[in-house]
């Protein structure tokens, strides 16, 4: 049966684990991120070690090393996504290209706020912006 093993690691262990997994031919399932209830970021690197998914997670870090050199596009897209939605900086990652956000949001305050701000606040900001632009609700 499918199992999910969670292992907490430090920032320095990310690259050695990625190298080890890549060497063993394991697939990178995904890099996922969210804000914990205490406001700290939680970034987890999920590898498929069949039939188990091993999730290596780091807590409270906003600057992380990029593993896009090791896993190529399979890691680059999730890293750009986390940079756009959760404001995580990956060292050595080219973020000049947008992925999901519209181009005008890359230069405004919208960048990196989508997963950080509560939905109600995002909604209020949007309504305020619409009012300024003279659009009816």
């Amino acid at each position: 049966m499918q199992e999910n093993k969670m292992i907490q690691i430090t920032k320095d262990e990310i690259v050695p684990i990625a190298l080890k997994m890549r060497h063993e031919g394991k697939f990178l399932v995904m890099i996922q991120g969210y804000l914990q209830t205490d406001g700290q970021t939680n970034i987890s690197y999920d590898y498929a070690v069949d039939p188990v998914i091993e999730s290596y997670y780091v807590v409270g870090e906003t600057d992380l090393p990029s593993i896009a050199d090791i896993y190529d596009e399979a890691a680059r897209w999730p890293e750009i996504e986390l940079h756009e939605l959760l404001n995580i900086n990956f060292e050595g990652l080219d973020v000049s290209r947008r992925l999901f956000l519209p181009e005008d949001m890359l230069v405004t305050e919208g960048k990196g706020q989508i997963l950080v701000m509560p939905l109600s606040e995002l909604r209020d900001n949007r309504l305020e912006q619409m009012r300024e632009e003279g659009i009816e609700e």
Binding site: M30, Q32, Y34, T37, E73, A74, W77, L115
Partner: peptide, 26 residues
Amino acid sequence: SYKVVGNGSLTNHRVSIHVPSYKNTP
């Protein structure tokens, strides 16, 4: 792949959805 995080309430704390096209489009 889905990642669901719960915090003991009725609602999800986080749902992270990653679809096959996310891997195949690059």
